[in-house]
Design a protein around this nucleic acid. Structure first.
Lengths: 224, 224
DNA sequence: CAAGTAATCAATAAGATAATAGAATAGTTG
DNA sequence: CAACTATTCTATTATCTTATTGATTACTTG
């Protein structure tokens, strides 16, 4: 029955290729970023605080596991998620971690929740309001990510430009800011800024992958 | 902006605990087995062809990632999945691998499919027949796994006992054998044996976790 | 076609991981 | 309470991983 053992070893060896790919914190960060849209190596390196060489190596490991693909575009190499299933998988991993790892919840509580004053908004309710456009939604991610996919009706106001573009935001309506997902800090900061300016602002934890996973439509392209 | 970096590092570090846990082939095999039901260390060691000491270590790593739990029961330590979400996650990983990794598909084709003569049964159709009990379903896993959860109406006939219990299986009906899932060899062997004895037997790729994931009921306990 | 740029490759050192074997522990049974 | 059993712990070795650095490749652009 040695043939069975060999078969099993090969099968689980293959499965573990996916596991190995997602066993490094930096590769998970890269994957999370790529779930927001395609990106050049340089950008990924900057976002993750890695050297370009190191980023490149991690990306090749992800590519080896068929989780991402790369294509030379002009002077740059652009990496992208190989299949939307990869984002679904990443999300299921993120949610499992969120539910099972107490330390993770704690880290987030300390960093994000304290700033928002632990506001308890009903998420489903908030999503409904976003869906029915009864609130002003702003997407504070970099513009390329907005273009790659955003919540329909959302305004693209990257965090970096927020201060200078406050005039575009109505002061009398409820503002909802979102970014890459529950572990992204952009929307948290946006809410900080908006509130200090007297806006009624709130953060939506979900990112575009979460929005999509709920079966809601995602818009692409610039808002002109 | 160093505080942000620290936060991100902590978050992805946490996420990677799950990734590290599923980055070893042997741990994946253990997880797959535990998704079939709770098991003693000894049994897990035998099933995976690992030494007991080595098995114990791997199990502790899985426990460190909160994927499994252990409890001393009499003379033995019994390990079990910590939460059914873990099986859902494992399944999503298995399916991602199945879809993305060509080598995996190839390995399975070579080992399993050739024996079944590459029979092309419509899986949905087969599941329907199993669901409506218009076929005789046999569960060829060890009895403990059957007791921990099985397809309603299935007969428990462990592969080891199949030869001696052929009399219990009606010869005029279609027989469907299932085991742990798509990468388990038990049902393949059962079908081999049954066919050689003149039965109209076929293998169902799905295991109990897949059955459950489709929203179908799972029965527990022995069949008396 | 030379200079410049983005990405990758190669070599290394530090650190983590896995299997093994033997010792130790905790609990059970005679 | 001594012998036994299942599991875990410890130490060791061999094997991977990761980050770093500097060199190299593949393109583009002047």
């Amino acid at each position: 029955m040695n043939r069975d053992r060999q078969f099993k070893d090969t099968v689980y060896e293959q499965l573990s290729r996916i596991g190995k790919a997602v066993s490094s914190p930096k590769r998970l960060e890269l994957l999370d970023l790529l779930c927001q849209g395609p990106k050049k190596v340089e950008v990924l390196a900057k976002e993750t605080d890695l050297s370009v060489a190191n980023t490149s190596q991690h990306l090749q490991i992800l590519r080896g596991a068929s989780l991402v693909e790369s294509r030379k575009e002009g002077l740059y190499v652009v990496y992208r998620i190989a299949d939307s299933d990869v984002c679904v998988f990443f999300r299921s991993m993120r949610m499992l971690a969120g539910r099972r790892l107490a330390e993770l919840e704690l880290t987030v509580q300390r960093f994000l929740k304290e700033r928002e004053g632990l506001e308890t908004v009903d998420r489903e309710e908030l999503l409904e309001r976003v869906r029915h456009k009864s609130v002003t939604v702003i997407d504070v991610r970099p513009p390329e990510e907005y273009e790659a996919g955003h919540i329909p009706g959302a305004l693209s106001i990257p965090l970096k430009k927020l201060q200078s573009r406050l005039a575009e935001i109505p002061k009398d309506r409820q503002i909802v800011a979102y970014c890459r997902g529950p572990y992204c800090v952009l929307a948290v900061k946006a809410v900080d800024i908006l509130r200090s300016q007297g806006y009624k602002a709130i953060r939506l934890e979900d990112g575009v992958p979460d929005w999509r996973a709920r079966g809601f439509k995602v818009a692409t392209g610039s808002n002109k």
